[in-house]
Simulated scan of single mutants.
Amino acid sequence: MSGSVDIERLDRAVARLESVASTLGCEFPPAEPLQLEQLDRVEAAIAPLRLPSDIAHFYRTWSITKAGTLFLPHLCDLGFALDSWDEHRATEWPSAVLFPIAYMSHWMHFVELDHPDSPGPWIYDGAYAGGLFTLAHSCLAAWLEWIADEVEAGRVEEVWEGRWQLTREQTDDDERTERLRADDVPDDAIPPFDDSDRRQWPLRWNLADGFDPADYELRGPTHTLASFVEALRAGPASATIHVGLIRQMGHSAELADETGCLAVTLERQDSPFGTGRIWEVEISGDHQPDLQLLPYPEPEEPPQFDISRQDDPDYLAEYAAGAARRMAVRSDPVATVT
């Protein structure tokens, strides 16, 4: 790892945050045996990757059970974090070098694990619902320092009895950039990037995952979706097609080009489609004499998630059902993308 880790800075940040926020329910008692056992399991499971030394020191020294609700997203226990990381490996999103340390609904903070090309214990902001990866903080100490700054500035509110929350979810881009630059983060690492587009991911993430971004370069199609469907009507066919992703649920997806839409099976669930981008895919299917293209779906904008209702199970179920409806593929898959 090329980036340095300042354990003393983290110790000072924890002490300062506890000093300014203990009356708001943010405390850091000594780590409990269960947390230490979870830490050992995490370190064994992620090897040869490693937790950055500041993250390991934090969990080995302090308990997060009384960290309170000032952390947005909330710090998650290591058992949940490891389960999430394992699930992410099954879907191959995000990169294996990103380990979740905080979670709330679809929203997560990931720390970049220690590996040969790691720039440091950077903390990224991301979400299951898709969108952007944003480098939020240069390290855990920087995140704690920012929370303490917000508390001292009075930017907190009591959202439920005894539960305090920052009035800003995160710093704006100018302030975030200033903080990152102060910690010597290079400018080219600061802009957000599309979390669904592997071509925008740092090269070190792709290489750690065994992906070569050159594999995703456009080289030239042999068919449109319409001509591929026409070929399938005559017999089994394979093609190279330039398409965009319309919808995806697991391994089922709906692809589109200028000629129409087609439901397919993704051999790899992580097929690196980026919203609004064109990808070159290898596609094949069996003889289907009556196959027709699907029409373009009517666009449906997702509603803004109401964070004040995050503990309402009926609201969460309704929101999840709406997300599933918007992403549902409209027919059984008729071809396979390899």
Rank of each mutant, 00 (worst) to 15 (best):
D6M: 11
V20M: 13
E18M: 03
E175V: 11
A153M: 10
S53P: 01
P213N: 06
W62N: 09
H109Y: 02
T65K: 08
V5L: 08
R16Y: 09
L294I: 11
I101W: 02
P313H: 06
T61C: 02
P100S: 15
D6Y: 03
T275Q: 09
V334E: 11
P33N: 12
W164G: 00
I307T: 00
Q35G: 01
D149I: 10
V42S: 08
T69M: 07
Q292H: 02
H115A: 14
V97C: 01
L78F: 07
R41G: 11
P48C: 15
L78K: 07
S4Q: 12
R155L: 13
F71N: 03
L98Q: 13
A127D: 15
D184S: 15
C76P: 06
D11K: 14
L232M: 14
V281Q: 03
I123Q: 00
S196E: 12
S196A: 15
A234V: 10
G162Q: 04
T259S: 14
H242Y: 06
T167Y: 06
R247L: 09
L75F: 03
V229H: 05
R198K: 08
E230L: 08
Y319R: 05
I190A: 00
H57M: 02
A44V: 12
A136F: 00
S84R: 13
L49K: 02
L72I: 08
L294E: 04
P313S: 13
A317R: 03
C139K: 05
R325W: 01
A142H: 14
P94E: 08
W122G: 01
Y103P: 08
D188K: 08
H74F: 07
G285R: 01
A226Y: 06
I307L: 03
D114T: 07
D188N: 14
E258N: 05
W107M: 10
A96S: 15
D197L: 05
V42W: 08
S84F: 02
F193N: 14
L36W: 04
A102Q: 10
G210W: 06
R247S: 10
I246P: 05
V337D: 05
S252F: 01
D40A: 15
R247E: 13
F71G: 14
I278N: 05
A237D: 04
G235Y: 02
K66E: 15
P202S: 04
I278F: 01
T61Y: 01
E161D: 12
H223T: 06
A44T: 12
